[in-house]
Amino acid sequence: MQHADRAHGRAQQPGNPFRCAPCITLSFCLPLSSAVAQTGDPLVCHSSLSLSPNPLPFSFFVTHLFQINPRQTDASETMAVAQVPRNFKLLAELEKGEKGMGAGACSYGLEDPEDILMTHWTGTIWGPPHGHHENRIYELKMECGPNYPKEPPIIHFVSQINLPGVSQTDGRVDPNYVGILRDWTRISAELSRNPRPKEDPLSLEAALIAIRKYMEEHKKLPQPPEGSKYPMYK
């Protein structure tokens, strides 16, 4: 709520393109193309629209909030294509990361708590044991673009690492080397057609865990001195 309060405070400043009602959190603020046409705001709040002189019908919110095709009438078909919007999903991931509810060998959070678009994240991986990664802590940066979670995050190592598929120039992870990143788009498409499993297979945490597993497969490779960082992060 503190984060939402700060966002609301900024929303009230003159000239700010974001509007949010006091009674609603940032998680309900979603880009709605039809709403932009009505209000001129690129990001609007459902409750703000509902208070407008010409309130939009409830079906409008259902259609945009869950990305449901209004032409579909079959209930099972509608449930199959419903997708969790980007902001909802990232807020859930943020809460899980802040509460330390994920895997103990990885952690993650927003790079800037003021990043209301939740684009830039930091991650940490504790090196796998019984190899050259043991007792090392690796820092990473992750970028969730506007099409996340349909598209995978862009991930860079900040800490230097000798690992196939990781650029020795800027630490970028080639998604073709890490299974979940390579198959992300395909899995996302499958999830859009089928009910979601209890545990979300596509998340920042899942990506970090997969990278750590990949590191474990190459734990015998010699590594740069501990604490080394790529030049762009020094």
Results as ranks from 00 to 15, higher is better:
C144Y: 08
Q72A: 06
D200A: 13
I211W: 01
S159H: 01
Q2P: 09
L181W: 05
L90Q: 01
P146I: 12
S203Q: 07
P153G: 04
S159K: 05
P222S: 15
H8D: 01
H120V: 09
D74M: 02
C106Q: 06
L163S: 05
L65P: 03
R196A: 14
R172C: 09
A105Y: 15
V173S: 06
I116D: 10
F58L: 12
S192N: 15
K99Q: 13
F18G: 01
I24F: 03
S76C: 13
Y177P: 00
D115M: 12
A103R: 06
D115F: 15
P224I: 07
R186K: 15
R172K: 11
D183I: 02
G102Y: 01
A7H: 08
M79D: 05
W121M: 09
L117G: 15
F88I: 14
G127A: 09
N16L: 04
I155K: 04
Y233L: 00
N135M: 06
P224S: 05
L110I: 13
P53R: 03
A82Y: 03
V62N: 00
N69F: 00
Y233Q: 00
P14I: 09
L181E: 00
K229W: 01
P201I: 06
A4K: 00
P152G: 08
L26I: 14
E217L: 12
E93L: 01
I154F: 03
I68G: 08
I125W: 03
R19H: 14
T169H: 12
S47F: 04
S47Y: 07
F28D: 05
K99E: 08
F28L: 03
I161E: 04
L204K: 10
G9Q: 08
L221Q: 14
P17E: 11
L140P: 06
S50L: 11
L140W: 04
L90D: 02
R196G: 12
G97Q: 07
K213S: 09
L110Y: 12
I154Y: 06
D74L: 06
P222N: 14
L51K: 04
Y177C: 03
G179W: 01
A37H: 09
Y177V: 02
F60N: 04
W184E: 06
Y177L: 00
V173A: 07
W121T: 08
Y214A: 00
V44M: 10
A103P: 03
C23K: 07
P149S: 15
S107K: 14
T78W: 00
L191V: 15
V36A: 10
G109C: 11
P55C: 02
H156N: 13
I211S: 04
G165A: 01
T63L: 03
I180N: 01
P14E: 13
S50I: 06
L49N: 04
R86W: 05
F58A: 08
V158I: 11
L30W: 15
L208W: 03
L51A: 07
K220A: 15
L32Q: 14
R186H: 12
P231R: 10
E134D: 13
A37Q: 12
K219Q: 06
A21K: 03
D200Y: 07
